[in-house]
Nucleic acid binder design. Structure first.
Lengths: 363, 363
DNA sequence: TTTTAGCACTCTTTAGCCTCGAGTGCTAAC
DNA sequence: GTTAGCACTCGAGGCTAAAGAGTGCTAAAA
């Protein structure tokens, strides 16, 4: 068997493409007769059958059972995505929806990601995922405190990625607003630009020293800062349009669907997946190509959103293996390109103005 | 037909209870023979059949088809929940798990709610929901600004419920930290303790007046405050253990499951449901008792968490109508009781303050 | 050498039919 | 009011037959 891609004749490619398209649409095995009718080929169904048999030998197609039509294999889809898929041209309406999102001018990435993934689910009719990747070593750029009551204040931290997180803190003894102001100054001096595992005993001692009379606050503070850093490190996976999965018959197997839902909820496996991707190119994982075993008859397409060379998020599409890759790829490109623009030019997130999103084309 | 609950004889109650228990466990129709064997009654199966026929006439039971056993109706479950259910005694292990949650000493309500709902899903083996209700008229108690760069700062707002939210803002012209400090003073003077619809033109004019040279910042600020208030108003619904639904055969109907998932994702209907409940008692909605039409063969049990008379959150359990109400009720009581303790005594949320930091964007 | 027509073959799907068994309702006796 | 007995109903499951879709193979044609 020669599996060289270049060995596929034009006709074979055409037939494979036709089968992939038919299978994407209907989900059923595709027979030679169907290919003949829907693809204007100048040959008979017998010839197509021969070609199909060869494509099966080469591993691009398979038969669910002896007298059924052919279904593209994982490998067939891989070849389709790599070499055969054509650029999907978005409708005016689709473009308009993306533009509408763009004009909403949201300033916070979390929100943008969720909205974008909602839209992605709507446009593609698959389930979409918004990912905020794990940040391995976030630090805090700036601390601020907010005085509420004599024994109750809020600690606010701005991370190196621009996230803002806060924690309510309570003190055993009353403190004054002035003490509090001093406290944030000290924090800014001692604990900025340190990741969780860089905070050591000397920092803590320095903190206590600088706090002077208020040294008793130190241990609670360190704990709070530590918690904040850990929260900032955590990745997030938010799923939109889960119900859309169910319209595809491949998910009518309850046990498998249950496993998939469980995995989605766990989010760890997905975060691992994303953390393994590099650069800001679209990734297409078909079936067993992803290490999430529960996704054997699913496909996951995702595109990272980068800023200044760092991955700050990603949008993914999850669906059956027979996914409309052309449309999914185009949608992700369109959306993430626009998000990058949004972040780069027209909003409040900058500081080191960004790189207006890179355009990638599929294929 | 006399439907008076008091008219149910002891034996009828016993039979109904037996059928409910059997159906909760197995999900299948229950026959007279089964009742006879598992309930030590001093009568024959024929008598039980007679009683069951009467219970059916009264509307507590129904037959899926003529030669099947009986299944409790919605009304049957309602009667069971109101009058028949016995207190479930938690195992030491279950209590230990709840206590472990308690000892985690989280300070932010959001986090507590999510963790508690995770635990609820684990303990009951149903799907759990953490709800942060819509707050109809939140106001901002305190503003704070954080200077990042000459044209980039963060606006932080502490709401009347204790939530902290922030927004990145960018200015066209550079501003100094002193300007920024003044800005937060002005905001605290003009825009605190106002809900979104109480902010009127005079406020805006006063803001501009007080800002003096920096009046050009006013419109962006008002917009940001408005956005913050709206975000604070929004309710949230977070689902845990969705995969658990699928183990119950009532959810093997794909179309219905799809509708349910869609509704869960929408969250509006659920928030409406919660907003209609009053006080801090457990609510049990069986089948069509909830107005969510998609839940006709489901049940929803939820318990609000109140603090100083205000509902600050809720935990709910969603499952099939034949839910183990005894266990679910006990679990919710145990959990929410402990959460109230957590908030009341031992943490940083006091002073009528609720919710903790939401982080926004990276970027 | 490649293509094509024809045909036998395979395998799934569906419908119909039957039996089995669970569970009931009714009647008549206790 | 309770019980034993029995006929009846209805779904589940298994078996068979027919239909249909699609293939692989062979032999002839291009």
């Amino acid at each position: 068997m020669d599996h060289d891609k270049s060995e596929l004749s034009e006709r074979k490619k055409q037939i494979l493409k036709a089968i992939v398209h038919a299978h994407i649409e209907g989900g059923e095995p595709v027979g030679s007769k169907y290919v003949l009718e829907n693809q204007h080929l100048t040959c008979s169904s017998a010839t197509i059958r021969n070609e199909m048999a060869e494509l099966e030998n080469m591993g691009y197609l398979e038969q669910p059972h002896a007298s059924a039509g052919r279904v593209p294999t994982e490998r067939g889809y891989r070849f389709y995505v790599d070499s055969l898929v054509e650029h999907y041209v978005m409708t005016a309406n689709e473009i308009a929806q993306i533009n509408r999102l763009l004009h909403a001018k949201m300033s916070e990435l979390d929100q943008i990601l969720v909205e974008a993934s909602n839209l992605a689910a709507n446009l593609t009719n698959y389930t979409a995922i918004a990912i905020k990747p794990r940040a391995s070593s976030v630090s805090i750029n700036k601390f601020e405190t907010i005085y509420l009551e004599p024994d109750h204040y809020i600690l606010v931290a701005v991370s190196s990625t621009g996230s803002v997180k806060s924690k309510h803190l309570q003190t055993k003894q009353p403190i004054t607003p002035e003490t509090l102001a001093n406290l944030s100054d000290v924090l800014n001096m001692v604990l900025t630009n340190l990741s969780a595992d860089q905070i050591t005993l000397p920092h803590m001692m320095k903190l206590e020293a600088l706090l002077g009379n208020d040294a008793h606050l130190a241990s609670d503070l360190i704990k709070a800062v530590y918690d904040l850093l850990n929260e900032l490190d955590e990745g997030e996976v938010k799923v939109s349009g889960l119900d859309r999965l169910l319209q595809y018959p491949e998910y009518s197997d309850v046990a498998q669907l249950q496993a998939l839902l469980g995995t989605l909820e766990n989010k760890e496996e997905f975060l691992d997946l994303f953390s393994k991707s590099e650069g800001d190119d679209v990734s297409v994982l078909i079936g067993s190509e992803s290490e999430v075993k529960v996704m054997n008859n699913s496909a996951l397409v995702f595109k990272p959103i980068t800023k200044d060379g760092k991955t700050i998020g990603a949008i993914g599409i999850l669906g059956p293996r027979r996914m409309d890759y052309a449309k999914v790829l185009a949608t992700l490109e369109g959306l993430t390109g626009n998000i990058a623009d949004l972040i780069g030019s027209n909003n409040q997130l900058t500081g080191g103005k960004g790189n207006g999103g890179e355009q990638k084309d599929d294929g």
